[in-house]
Design a binder for these strands. Sequence first.
DNA 1: CCTATTAAATGGAACGTTCCAATAAATCAA
DNA 2: TTGATTTATTGGAACGTTCCATTTAATAGG
Lengths: 352, 352
Amino acid sequence: MASRAKATIFDIAREAGVSKSTVSLVLQGSGLIRPETAVKVRKAIEDVGYVYNRGAANLRKAHSNVIGMVINDLTNPFFAELAVGMERVFQSAGIVPFIANTAENPVRQEEVLKSLMEQGVAGLIVSPARGTTPGAFRRLEIAGLPIAFAMRRLPESRIPVIAPDNHRGAYLATAHLVGKGHRRLAFFGGSSDLVVYHERLGGFREACETLGIDARDALIIEGETNRKGGMACLETSLAMAEPPTAALCFNDAVAFGVMLALRKRGLEPGPDFAVVGFDDVVEAEHYMPPLTSVAVDSAGLGERAAHVMIKMIQSRTTRAEDHIGAVNLVVRESCGPDRRTQKRPAPTGAAT
Amino acid sequence: MASRAKATIFDIAREAGVSKSTVSLVLQGSGLIRPETAVKVRKAIEDVGYVYNRGAANLRKAHSNVIGMVINDLTNPFFAELAVGMERVFQSAGIVPFIANTAENPVRQEEVLKSLMEQGVAGLIVSPARGTTPGAFRRLEIAGLPIAFAMRRLPESRIPVIAPDNHRGAYLATAHLVGKGHRRLAFFGGSSDLVVYHERLGGFREACETLGIDARDALIIEGETNRKGGMACLETSLAMAEPPTAALCFNDAVAFGVMLALRKRGLEPGPDFAVVGFDDVVEAEHYMPPLTSVAVDSAGLGERAAHVMIKMIQSRTTRAEDHIGAVNLVVRESCGPDRRTQKRPAPTGAAT
DNA sequence: CCTATTAAATGGAACGTTCCAATAAATCAA
DNA sequence: TTGATTTATTGGAACGTTCCATTTAATAGG
């Protein structure tokens, strides 16, 4: 109820019988003030119910202590993990991370970015929304604000990126399927407006080529990056003359959709059709059957991104090296051997 | 690279050949300035690469335009939904919501709250971390800051709450199980340091009583509110002399764990043991079998909470009515009839 | 006991806005 | 034309800090 006018350092000063400057000094933990004075002041701070006004302080101080994390989809545990990882390291560095969600909407992203700038953030970590225009960050760049991309990157941009090794992940997964004897491989889900898509698809293609598999474009089926998209992909693929026997999915959500659709058709994921996901979200382990997936350690990438940002801020630069995080294929039970090729002669050996 | 000293309204003023006051006026979209002047100024704003300093503005203005949303676990899609719902309405009200995660840690929560206060937020929406001490918000309350709790409440507190009707949800779910013929009902997961737990358990108990079921305390098994907790609960319950035939789970995660553990024992969730969850997260629909659960519409509650907050801010009050959101039981396939009681006479009718 | 040195505390200007009171310019009524 | 009114624009003070240059107090050196 009360809400009497907010207390300022002047109120503290009066209460403690010192000057405002002295109060400011103890607020900053300066060693210049006599311990007994500090105690006195701290008591006054408590008594008047003071809350520090960081906005006023930032008016004078060179840099603020808040950084913005702009996430494209907080609802996706995968990105939420990323945010949580970042938070962890920022917290222990005395930096306050504010999270904002763009809901995969570039317009919203623009607004959010503007707000964060106005708030005077010291840096920005962004997982850009799908459909972000290449120039969207140009203004922030020339303003000299440290920015890093996490998880996703923009087509042509000099902004440092912290992301998993999508290419290699896809390669590993594809090789795994080939090792199981599959020859008709599909790539399900995702769309070409995402750089990640090209990276993962690139790994898939390279693996096919290297291992002597014919990667027909017809089996590369774009789609939504969720369960629904996965279901749709499976349906179209099975309607083909020569349907695939296995699929690498753009992400786990797509993979779950594929498994759902298989079940609906009375097929058993694994024995009847091999599916591997990407991201290795927590549910992957608990699904029926447990999903083979490429683990990317998003929390770890978040931590990494936070460290990069801290370094950028400290060295007041806007440049940093990219960081490509290691991935590893977690083999579970969603990939049986190909029943057809099984009877045929041994698979071709892998080059490289 | 550049980062020449930040442009201020004075720079704009010089560039446009007007006074700083004029610039301030156009910045606020005042109707007092001549349109042509406004255009001139806006051009200058663009030219000098100006970014508004909200910190400086807040120094004068009564209230800021940012509100803080403090979430106990962003990793849980359930709470993430809540945040997303709030964001939606704040955005369209010109309010910038900053999300902070406490990771269910009261200490962290304290820090986060402090930061948000220092940042000068206009209000706070909080889903308090487990183990929050009753006095944790006392200071903020007496500071006269509008606060609302979402999803969770604190034992004794006058702060308004926006939460689902946990009691009724649990009642409905329990009645459903009884309707299926079950007589030995268990309540799995959760712990008594959560108010929500008491609410849900209360609904369970009331339903048992009303429907003439003997709710033995032995069958109320506390546990972690995740898959692991669910698995543990099932194990302990099956080790009993007279094990239950059905369970209401504290939330969906617990329910998933229960189903997992059933499978592991060669039992089929549904036919062999009925399980119902709470929250109705997205996976519930897609699980094997699809999980019967109490839907709470967290995004809707988030929107509601945001509206309440906006009203509190506008009417500069710290009081508001609680809002208890409707729930509804989504019946899917995880609850078969009790095989044992099936052969017995018809179940007792429900009173009330 | 006085001066030089160090330690503590202080006043004032500055940071980038908003808002009020005041001015200047334009319009109107007579 | 002149004063009254309205419309646009402006200077100055204030907001709550930090930081620098000073002042004051305490201590040491001779």
